[in-house]
Design a protein around this nucleic acid. Sequence first.
DNA 1: GCTTGGCACTCGACCGGGGGGAGTGCTAAA
DNA 2: TTTAGCACTCCCCCCGGTCGAGTGCCAAGC
Lengths: 354, 354
Amino acid sequence: MTLDARAEILLKTLIERYIAEGQPVGSRTLARQAGLELSPATVRNVMADLEDMGLVRSPHTSAGRVPTERGYRVFVDTLLKVKPLNAGELYKLEHELLANHDPHHLIENASHILSEICNLAGIVTAPRREEQLAFRHIDFMSLSGQRILVILVTQDGQVHNRIIQAEREYSPAELVQAANYFNETYSGVSMNDVKRALLSEIQQASDDMQRIMQVAVRMARAALSTEEEPEELVVSGESKLMDFPELGDVRKLRKLFDAFTAKSDLLQLLDQSMRAGGVKIFIGSESGYEVLADCSVVTAPYSADGRIVGTLGVVGPTRMAYEQVIAMVDITARLLSGALSSGERANRLESTNR
Amino acid sequence: MTLDARAEILLKTLIERYIAEGQPVGSRTLARQAGLELSPATVRNVMADLEDMGLVRSPHTSAGRVPTERGYRVFVDTLLKVKPLNAGELYKLEHELLANHDPHHLIENASHILSEICNLAGIVTAPRREEQLAFRHIDFMSLSGQRILVILVTQDGQVHNRIIQAEREYSPAELVQAANYFNETYSGVSMNDVKRALLSEIQQASDDMQRIMQVAVRMARAALSTEEEPEELVVSGESKLMDFPELGDVRKLRKLFDAFTAKSDLLQLLDQSMRAGGVKIFIGSESGYEVLADCSVVTAPYSADGRIVGTLGVVGPTRMAYEQVIAMVDITARLLSGALSSGERANRLESTNR
DNA sequence: GCTTGGCACTCGACCGGGGGGAGTGCTAAA
DNA sequence: TTTAGCACTCCCCCCGGTCGAGTGCCAAGC
C-alpha cells in the first residue's frame, strides 16, 4: 500500500503535468517528463498499480490518467514542495494589502489580492472580535420620532452604527448626558465586560439609579442586543472560475455562484478551519458540500493581537496550483494578521514551510 | 414605413411568443397564435415586410423569425402594455423592501428584491446626496500615532467614517474641543456650505483664529477632502443570468460578470439615465457597451425628498419580459424614493402608466 | 523478477453524408 | 388581397468510417 520512490515521482509528475495542462496524461508523455529513463510500458505498469490504489483513474479506456481526490491528497500531504514567494512578489503583495489601514478595507483588499495572485476566487471572513475589544466611545443621536442612532467605536477604531427604536422620544440634551455617563463609566472596558455590566446594572437597583444613567443603560442595552451582525464573508473574483474548462458547465457554475451568494455553506467551512492553525486544504468532496465537489478550498486563519479572528482562503478547481496557492494563502494570512495587530510592524514572517 | 394594425399585432404576438419561448417563431405558429384568422402564407408576406423594415430577422433560411433590436424598440415604445402589479405582489414588495430603514440596507434590499421578482440581475447605485444634506455631528478620535478617526453624521442618520493622517499628535482634550467647536458652528448647515466655509476660513485670517478652531478646521478639511468615496453600485442575483440559454456561452458570461465587478461601465450608464426621469430602457447595443450587446437594461431614477439621488434597475437578456419588468422597476423606484424621504409615509403611488 | 518492445484493442474526436422536419419564397389561382 | 401549393433551403440528428492516442497484455530480454 505504500508507494516506492519511483511511483511517487511518477505520481508527482503526473499531477504537476495535469495541473498545468488540464488533460489526461499518457504513459509516453509521463515517461519523457519524469526524467527517469523509463519506457512507456513500465510507466503503464506503475500506473496500473496507482489505479489499484485509487490515486489515479482514466476518464475512459484510452485516455491517459487523471488524479483522483485521494491522489491529490497524497500529493498535497507528502509530495508537494511549497514554493515560497520571491522578494518581488512579496513586496507587491504587502504593498497592495497595506494600501489602506481601515480594517474593513483590509479584508476587502485581502480577498481581492488573493483572487488576483492565485487567479481563483478569494474568500475572507470578516473579523469577529468585537467581544474581546475594549469599548471606546459611544454616541446617541435622535433621528425622526423615536428612532435613535447609536454610534459605537471600539478600541481598534472600528465604527459600528445601529438604529434602535426607543420607547419614548428623548431630548438631545438627555442623549448627550447619557452618552457622557456611558463613556466615562465604561471607557477601556472590554465589550464582553460592558455587556455583562449592563445586564447586572439593569436588573439591580433600577430605581435608585439616576435617570440619566437609566437612559444610558437602556439605550446601550438595546443597541448591544441587536448587535448580532450576520457574520460577513467577502468573496472576490468569482468570475475567474469561469476560465477553467472543468467547471465550464453552466449548471455547475450556477450552483457554485449561488453558494457564493448564499455564503452559509462557505462560512461554515471557514469557521471549521478557524480552529486548526495553519493552512488547511479541502479537496473535492472532503469539504462535505456538494457544490464544492469539483473544487478545492485552501484556507488559513488570521489573527489580531495573537488571537484568531477570522479565516481567509481561495476556492478553485481541484486542479489548482497548490504549490503556489498554499504559500500565497499562508503569507496573506500572516500579512493580514500583522496589519490587524496593534504592534503593527512586529509581523514576524518566519517562513515555516509545512 | 409605418406599420398597419395587422402588422403591429403580428409583431407584438411574435415578440411575446419569442420572449416566452426563446425560439424563432414560424408563420404557422404565429398565424394560430395571433387570433387573426390569417393563413400562414399571409403571415409570411407580412413577415417579409417586417424584415425589410429591420424589425425581425431569420437566424437562417428556414428558421422562423426573431425580433431585432429595432423590433424590440418598437415593441417597447408603442406596442407593449405595461402590466401593473397586483395588490398581493405590491404588498409583498413593499413589505420586503421596508424591512429595514437604514439607507444602506434599503438599497441592498432594493437590489435583491429587483433581482428576485424579475429573475434578472438587480443593480442599484448608492445615493449621492451628501452634498445636499445638512451636517449634523462630527467626532474626532485619535488612533495609534498620528492617525485620527473622523466620524461624520449627516442629517439623515448616515454615518461616514474616515481615517486621516495628522501632522502631529493631538491630545484627546484638544480633539473633543475641536469637535465641540465644529458641531456648534456648523450644525444644520448643508455639507456643501460647510465645505465652502472651510475653504474660506482656512485661507483667511488663519493667524488670529483660536488654536482649537484651527485644529477643528484642519481636521475637517482633511476628512472632507478625502471624502471622495468611490460611487457605489450594488449588484444582486448575477447568477440568475446563467439560466438564459442565449447568454449560456461561458466566455460571454465571463465578460458580463467582469463588467459587474468593474462597475464603471454600468455606473456610467446608470448615471446617464439619472438625468431623465422615469423608466429608461437600453436594448442591446443601445447602451453603447459591447458587453451589454445581448442584454437589455431597464432603469429608473429614485429620489429622496424630491431630489433624484440615484438609479436602480435590472440587467437581463434582450429577450426579457419587459411588460412586467418595467412595472417592477418603476414601482421599486417609487417605493425606495418614499422610504428615503423624510415624510416617509407620504409616498403617493399614483399608477402612471407610461 | 523487473523492464521492455510489440501488438491488438478500445475509445473519443473529427468528418462527411443522408434523412427528416420546419419554415421560407414564389407563383398562380380564387 | 388572400390563399393554397410547391420547390427549396437549411438545421439537426444519426450513422458510419477513419484517425490518433493510449491502454493492457504477452513474450522476450536483461
